[in-house]
Amino acid sequence: MRSFLPGLLESRDFVARQKRNRGISALIIFCFILFFILVGLSVDYAYLDSFASATAPIPFATLAALGFSTVLTLAGYYRGADWVLASVGAEPLDGKIPEHRELHNVVTEMALASGCPMPKVFVTYDAAPNAFATGRDEASSSICVTTGLLALLDRDETQGVVAHEMAHIRNRDTLVMVLVSVLLGGVALLADWAQRSWFHPRHSRRGHSLIAVPALLLVALSPLISRVMALAVSRQREYLADATAVEFTRNPLGLAQALEKIRDAGMPFQRATRGTAHLFIANPLRRRVDQRDGKLADLLATHPPIERRIELLYRMAGMPYKING
């Protein structure tokens, strides 16, 4: 591993960055929970008349949406890793191939550095340089990299990428995104039920108070708002994984230079889908919005702008970096 004496003190900034990103993630998730409750109560009030009874009101829609979404999400949680690996054509390492042996060694090193159990390691035969981690917890985790990434990166850069994926495992990002998926699915169910109940004959007999009007508007916009909040959590977890990777390697430039090569390759990963895009170290769909910084990218991208991530890593190494474009 290369030693980076210049900027050694600056490289310790990864601790502060981890703390900041964890705090932002927690705040967004807390707001997401409040938003889900608000949407649920709005549906119960404005559409289902759950609070019209003289007896104790029961927020039926809120509880039902939470229950249904939890069941559906947990089903994916327990089988999702197998589905994702199968969908990308992941294959176990072949010990006869030098690149595979080196990858196994790098993953072993990063497992030791992170304090996590050794994950299962897979490759998928695709020219696009990319990688992802999946699994319910540390004990059942897997890391998969493309052959394009192994061919493009040197050992330090591969180590940076693997450290990023090990960071997702140690930070329990799969569990975090399960919670986000429950909330996202719950809001979608509530909005769908509200739309269906609008045309129910009982709806015409409901009063429209001053509270009902903003409640209806909130429910109508809830799918978009919840999606934006879910994407915000995903972006913060990427920043957190970058900072945690530096903790493991003490080499910010390894990951920074890997991201530069992934950016410059500009190749989409053909087997990726919108449902799995957030798992990868860089958006495999190569959408333009994910490569930009600004208000639109902040709202709609699964990943932070890659230029911004590279800049922060160079800053942690105490080295200047000029953003392209």
Rank of each mutant, 00 (worst) to 15 (best):
L149G: 08
R227Q: 11
M229T: 05
S181C: 07
R263H: 08
R263L: 07
A194Q: 07
G7A: 15
N171M: 15
Y125W: 04
V123G: 02
D154N: 15
L285V: 03
M319Q: 01
A127W: 03
T147N: 04
A163H: 10
L217P: 03
A151Y: 10
V88W: 00
W193T: 09
T147I: 13
G318P: 01
G207H: 10
K295Y: 07
S11H: 09
Q291F: 05
Y77K: 01
T55F: 15
D298W: 06
A26S: 15
Y45S: 01
A212V: 14
F36G: 01
S181A: 15
S87K: 01
C144W: 06
P119R: 01
S50G: 13
G318D: 06
R206N: 11
M319Y: 00
L93A: 03
P305D: 05
P92C: 03
E165S: 13
R205A: 09
L103R: 01
G318L: 02
G160W: 13
P223N: 12
R170L: 09
I323A: 03
G318T: 04
K295W: 04
A212P: 05
G135M: 08
V289Y: 03
A212L: 14
D173N: 11
L300F: 08
G294S: 05
G148E: 02
M316W: 02
M1P: 10
S114M: 13
F14P: 01
V123F: 12
P201Q: 08
K322C: 07
L299D: 03
W83T: 06
A272K: 01
G275R: 11
L93E: 07
R22M: 13
Y239E: 09
S140Y: 04
S209N: 03
A277C: 04
A191R: 08
H208M: 09
F36A: 13
I310Y: 00
L300Q: 05
G76M: 12
R17F: 09
